[in-house]
Write a protein that binds this DNA or RNA. Structure first.
Length: 291
DNA sequence: TAGACGTGGCA
DNA sequence: TTGCCAAGTCT
């Protein structure tokens, strides 16, 4: 086990002078702003989130403001961030917060976890970053930093393990846990990256088990890559882009035009409807969801 | 628990 | 050019 202070002090000092100036980290950022950023950042790079977050917060500065909209408007303004079900869940989240929590984002981890679209990571992140709570924030960056620095391996396991959770709990400081969490995340995002880590710029390179072991490459089967071209996911994306661009019901022909394979297209469209991302009207047209 | 779920930038 | 990867969640 690495001596905790061998990591804490250097990483916190590094964060002090290297943290990015992100709007959801600003002193005037609200818990709602933090929550919105966390949902948008799931599997999505900061650079792509920034403009959408800024526009979103201007348009819907409170949960109640978003809750007053149709869910389809959330999907429309989600733009091309990807995984549009997140927009739907964020909208449902806003309605739950507005109606059941007095328009205040909950600060309690378990309550956050019960909201749509909020899982273990996001609940910990919001409780920690928005309210200063003491929670282990285990995202892909943190898991990679710990895998390398402590376990001496290039990558963490595919699924988050109990051992990882124990380690994160062990390293969690009594005071300043929130800052520690965001600092480790930032280190993973900027220095201890998945490909081509910048070990020369790393504040804990002297203590890193992976570097000291000679940076052995990941063993075992290659991590499964995501194919995209020709998949239902791509087809769904094309169909939804048509619905987002239109400001009223869309005739079926407009959807047929963006994907050749009719069998796959119908399956994808049915899937969008089943997921609540699209609505089929009685006259055979389609639109973003109203509810 | 493995697989589905978007999108685009970078090496 | 192709494949990897990005602050995960849900079923």
């Amino acid at each position: 086990m690495v001596e905790p202070n061998l990591l804490h002090v250097p990483i916190l000092e590094w964060y002090e002078s290297n943290a990015r100036d992100l709007p959801w980290r600003a002193a005037d950022a609200t818990p709602w702003g933090v929550l919105v950023s966390e949902i948008m950042l799931q599997q999505t790079p900061v650079a792509r989130v920034l403009p959408v977050w800024l526009e979103w917060m201007e348009r819907w500065p409170t949960p109640k403001a978003l809750a007053a909209e149709q869910p389809g408007e959330a999907v429309r303004h989600w733009g091309r961030l990807g995984y549009p079900r997140r927009a739907l869940r964020l909208h449902a989240c806003a309605r739950a917060i507005a109606e059941e929590h007095g328009d205040e984002v909950p600060s309690d981890h378990a309550t956050l976890l019960s909201l749509p679209g909020i899982g273990e990571y996001t609940a910990a992140a919001v409780a920690s970053f928005a309210y200063g709570g003491r929670h282990a924030v285990l995202d892909t960056n943190v898991r990679r930093v710990f895998a390398r620095a402590v376990r001496g391996e290039e990558y963490p396991p595919v699924a988050t393990s109990a051992a990882e959770r124990r380690l994160a709990e062990t390293l969690l400081p009594e005071l300043g846990a929130a800052r520690w969490g965001v600092a480790v995340m930032e280190l993973g995002a900027l220095v201890c990256t998945a490909r081509a880590p910048r070990c020369a710029d790393c504040p804990v390179t002297h203590a890193c088990a992976w570097r000291l072991a000679g940076k052995p490459p990941h063993e075992g089967p290659a991590r499964k890559g995501q194919t995209y071209a020709g998949t239902d996911r791509q087809c769904r994306g094309r169909l939804l882009a048509v619905l987002r661009a239109a400001h009223g019901p869309v005739p079926k022909e407009a959807l047929d035009a963006v994907w050749d394979d009719a069998v796959q297209r119908e399956r994808a469209l049915d899937g969008l409807v089943a997921d609540g991302l699209a609505e089929a009207l009685d006259d055979g047209t389609y639109r973003l969801p109203h509810a």
